[in-house]
Simulated scan of single mutants.
Amino acid sequence: MSRLAFSLPANTLRWIGWVAALLVITAIRSAAHAHGVGEDDRAFIEGASGTAIGPYMYLGAKHMVTGYDHLLFLVGVIFFLYRMKDVGAYVTLFAIGHSTTLLLGVLFDIRANPYLVDAIIGLSVVYKALDNLDGFRTLLGWTPNPKAAVLVFGFFHGFGLATKLQDLTLSRDGMVPNLVSFNFGVELGQFIALGAVLILMNLWRTTDSFRRGAVAANSALMCAGFVLVGYQLTGYLVLA
């Protein structure tokens, strides 16, 4: 996996500012739904009884495709992965992690404050951007195992999904197949989102601007992660 020397050219500060402002605005506008499910989806889930494979698959895919925190992390993970074999390995580790805690968290009612869990998810974005910039080696002299980190953060991403479902009144009738369907939908949404990202990334990699823009992109990604962390911690202190 290629990484960049850790540096922040002056012209990237403008990009960081724009990304930070955009995410703050998005966070404020979506605050009402930041730790839950949309009202229509909530009404369906709480009113459903028995097995509903198709609808739960749809809800899982929808949550992943619209879950900007999950997508930002995955963009960081695949940023310097050029071979599909490597992409598959990392995405599989992430899927194992989030599938495990999603299912176990709901089935065994393992709870944690959702704001703190989502703050850690924001930190996962910061971690991956810093890793792509080779910041750990520059600042600390060592680099965390990237595959182990993706698996561990996958556990937290899955637990974040579990906290969303725990806020709802789920029927025990058909819960296991419904949860499996939701998880499958998450994987489907992840596949769709990553497919689109990979197409764009591969097109960008063929241009001369990739090496220059990669520093700016990962710097902005790190900034986005810090914005997500700050937003979640603010929610914890003010609303929790």
Rank of each mutant, 00 (worst) to 15 (best):
V152R: 02
S124R: 04
M57T: 12
F159L: 14
P177T: 04
Y115W: 15
S49P: 00
V150K: 05
E187D: 05
V186Q: 10
N218C: 07
H33S: 08
V24W: 09
G122Y: 06
G230P: 06
A31W: 01
E187C: 03
Y231L: 05
G47H: 10
R137D: 13
A21P: 03
Y56G: 02
F153R: 09
V176R: 01
V65F: 07
T12E: 07
F79Q: 07
D40I: 10
P144R: 10
F210N: 07
F155T: 04
I78Y: 07
G105V: 07
R212Y: 01
L161R: 04
D131H: 15
H63V: 03
K85V: 11
V180T: 03
G17F: 05
D69F: 06
A193I: 05
D131T: 07
H98Y: 08
F226G: 05
G76T: 10
G17A: 11
F159S: 02
L74T: 07
N132G: 15
V215Y: 09
G97W: 08
T207V: 00
P144L: 07
G76D: 11
L139A: 12
L23P: 07
T138F: 08
A196L: 15
L23S: 04
T100W: 00
H33L: 05
T163R: 02
F153S: 04
G135Y: 13
G60I: 08
I16T: 11
R205K: 15
V180F: 12
W18R: 03
A32H: 11
D109I: 01
L140E: 02
G36F: 07
G160A: 06
P146F: 09
D167Q: 12
L22W: 05
F153M: 02
A27F: 12
G135D: 13
Y115M: 09
G185F: 03
G154I: 05
D167E: 14
E39A: 14
F136S: 11
F182R: 02
R3E: 13
D69N: 10
D69Y: 08
I199G: 04
S124C: 05
M175R: 13
H35N: 10
G36Q: 05
P146R: 15
C223W: 05
L102A: 06
V152S: 09
I199N: 01
L93T: 01
T163G: 04
R42W: 02
L151P: 00
A193S: 13
